[in-house]
Amino acid sequence: MSIGIIFSLLLVLAMLILMGSLLSYLTRPADNAQADSDTLMIDAVNAVLPQTQCAQCGYPGCRPYATAIIKEHELINRCPPGGERTVSQLSELLGTPTLPIDDSCGVEKPVQLAIIDEAACIGCTLCIHACPVDAIVGAAKLMHTVIAEQCTGCELCLPPCPVDCIDLVAPAPTAANWQWPQPT
């Protein structure tokens, strides 16, 4: 009987040690553990933000908002273009609870693309100056056009246009960026 008890104890102990050491070996932290400094955190937050530079959050661009989130503990729900996905990524990154998008900043919309009605454009260059990401080309008194791949759909070009010739449309999928539908 006593040999039985000892044997069982040893076997269980051996299994515990084996599995414990295996588990701790497999889940050991990566060698390049990130230093938890503010700059790195700002970079990380900035990488999550959609870079529309639309200023709907009340900051002049995505990086300033990222800086405010880290330095001034600004809320993470002020980015309507990023939507729920960005909020959940931020909450995961920062370890804060998720929040619904702040209505005062705007509402989440599908990705959009600005299109200039070239016949109506008078070539005033106001939209070119308004575009935060240099996605509109043109010159004074010449027709302007939007570089579709570079437009972030921020809507900042809409208010300055004196003849209201800019529309926002949903981008048509191309063969290159088409996605297979999600199975149901």
């Binding site: 900035n46 990488a47 933000l49 870079q51 530079q53 661009g61 240099d134 960026n177 088409w178």
Partner: peptide, 22 residues
């Protein structure tokens, strides 16, 4: 796979947009 590629492409576009913004 296409979704991951799409997200990567979007991320690339976002990075480019930020560079242009800067």
């Amino acid at each position: 796979k296409s979704n991951a590629n799409y997200i990567k492409a979007q991320q690339q576009l976002a990075d480019d947009a930020e560079l242009r913004f800067l």
